[in-house]
Write a protein that binds this DNA or RNA. Structure first.
Lengths: 126, 126
DNA sequence: CCAGAATTGAGAATAGAGTATCATGTGTAG
DNA sequence: CTACACATGATACTCTATTCTCAATTCTGG
């Protein structure tokens, strides 16, 4: 049994509203805009509950703090801007990943992260 | 100026001897087999020095502790066994990664990590 | 509305990775 | 060989991310 609370609603809404994975801090700030006074511990507890229900996914990108996003966005990967450090969702995937491993290995999932410069950062400068 | 010491030699040899990225702890153990008494701080200091010289690379894989490997292994990616948690080097890469991003984004590098079951773990069980 | 279970906020506590400190030991140029 | 900068080992410490604690509050079913 888990209760539905205004805090959890605000947290989930914040995640859904965002177009990219958010850090617990960012989630807290967004959720407090909806419903003030939400503590970081509550964010972590809610994320844990949502992850157990497979409603939220953890997005771990080397060099960036852990982020979370709704699980209903389908299979996708991420782009990290080396300048602003923001994470962007990408659509699509690539083929032939299985060919990279020896025949006696079985591949069950994969992560792809692209790094570079996003549109905003690339336009602003040279 | 940096000196060549028995500790650093042992650390570098350990990294070269391995066929996969190692954690600082694993490096320490391996290096101590060569030359006893090497402390963890020394391992970190040596790794820092080697990374500054681009002789060693940091390999960060979500869900696994940070690992290090020699930089002369060329462009490659990694496979993580979900059972034994070991990291394996993979050869080859995939094409068309640039097509995943909007035209006004520029991709400068990428990480690909495959997860599944390695040969040893897959053979041992069903 | 009521009871009891679940949740919350705040801050302390923990965990893991890496760094600082400092007295001592070692490598290298000359 | 000598001087001296650099490196080492042990340990304490920092930093960041996350969990725990606990009293107080909020849900939900009936």
């Amino acid at each position: 049994m888990s209760y539905s609370t205004r805090q959890r609603e605000a947290i989930l809404n914040t995640l859904r509203r965002a177009d990219r994975p958010l850090t617990p801090q960012e989630i807290r700030e967004g959720a407090n805009a909806d419903s003030a006074g939400i503590g970081l511990a509550t964010v972590y507890r809610a994320l844990k509950t949502f992850m157990a229900r497979k409603e939220v996914l953890l997005v771990e990108i080397p060099g960036n703090p852990p982020c979370y996003e709704p699980a209903d966005r389908g299979h996708h990967h991420h782009f990290v801007c080396d300048r602003c450090r923001h994470i962007f969702d990408l659509r699509g995937c690539v083929q032939d990943l299985d060919t990279l491993v020896p025949r006696d290995f079985s591949v069950q999932r994969h992560d792809i992260t692209l790094y570079g410069v996003c549109a905003a950062c690339g336009t602003g400068e040279g």
